[in-house]
């Protein structure tokens, strides 16, 4: 029996792919619904689009935007640095260091960030004065806690310390993902522990660390809006201040939302670029 391909007639076969009529019907429905929503949003006067346009580039709003970006960058930087330290402690062979790190992560992941923010804001009630001194020696620094804990420092402490707990887990997983043979090979070459970490383990861990940290940054942009509870004029609180005066609640919330959308879009693009750079070759 000889297997023959193609038809005997010499005319090429016509291949008809399987049709998916229901997929097309469902897609049509989805497009219709989306269009209806878009038309409604654009034409419903209650959205007050002219007011949105008026405030979108308002100086006060842009000031709030800047504060939001500042909080994101500084709190995230704190989270990364402290998180790396916590991750290394967590992986340490010393049970004391590893338990301390575990406790930190447990605590700061368990208490809601909103509660942490209010707590730091009221820290002066626990410790009215801040004193730095050499143990059993002279004082180096003395200040009222209320002068040290401004809304800004309370916000940074609340966001940064909580972020460190999350980042620590991400970094720990990244470091643990690097094959043990890599450390053995580096040791066999006579490399010291610090060199091995910086040159061999960390660059490989980055590939695993970057995607979730990208998510954390995006999440942080929005978490900063929590600081409105301690009266720090970030993007959301600025919008709230304005609509408290003018009662244009919806358009100002749209202004804030548009800026959050813009920031997250830029960050997502950045994350994509970074992921490509660290992709395994």
């Amino acid at each position: 029996m000889i297997l023959k391909l193609g038809s005997d007639s010499g005319v090429p076969d016509v291949v008809v792919p399987l049709r998916h009529p229901w997929t097309w019907a469902a897609s049509g429905m989805a497009v219709l619904i989306a269009a209806a929503v878009a038309v409604s949003v654009a034409t419903n006067p209650a959205f007050q689009w002219p007011v949105v346009a008026k405030y979108l580039f308002d100086a006060q709003i842009l000031g709030g935007l800047l504060r939001t970006l500042e909080l994101t960058v500084v709190a995230m930087a704190m989270g990364l640095v402290l998180g790396t330290v916590l991750a290394i402690m967590r992986l340490s062979a010393n049970p004391l260091l590893s338990t301390l790190s575990w406790l930190y992560i447990w605590f700061f992941r368990s208490v809601p960030v909103l509660v942490q923010l209010i707590f730091w804001y009221n820290f002066g009630a626990l410790y009215p004065t801040l004193v730095l001194r050499v143990p059993f020696g002279p004082e180096l620094y003395h200040a009222s806690m209320n002068a040290v804990i401004t809304p800004l420092t309370a916000a940074l402490a609340g966001l940064g310390l909580a972020q460190a707990a999350y980042t620590a887990e991400v970094i720990r997983a990244g470091i643990a993902s690097v094959a043990h043979g890599q450390t053995r090979a580096a040791k066999a070459l006579g490399m010291r522990p610090a060199t091995i970490f910086v040159r061999i383990v960390f660059p490989q861990a980055m590939r695993v660390i970057i995607p979730p940290v990208g998510n954390e940054v995006i999440s942080m942009v929005k978490s900063t809006s929590l600081v409105s509870v301690i009266a720090l004029s970030d993007l959301l609180y600025t919008a709230q201040l304005i609509y408290a005066r003018t009662y244009e609640t919806i358009p100002l919330l749209i202004v804030a939302s548009l800026w959050y959308l813009a920031i997250v879009s830029v960050l997502s693009a950045g994350q994509h670029v970074l992921e490509r750079r660290y992709r395994q070759r």
Binding site: A188, G190, M191, Q204
Partner: peptide, 24 residues
């Protein structure tokens, strides 16, 4: 200490079953 052992290991080369090259 690991530092001194690292000094000794420089004089001893090692080749592994699974190569363990640095992939990056």
């Amino acid at each position: 200490p690991e530092r001194q052992i690292a000094g000794m290991r420089q004089k001893v080369g090692m080749v592994f079953q699974h190569f363990n090259l640095f992939p990056h």
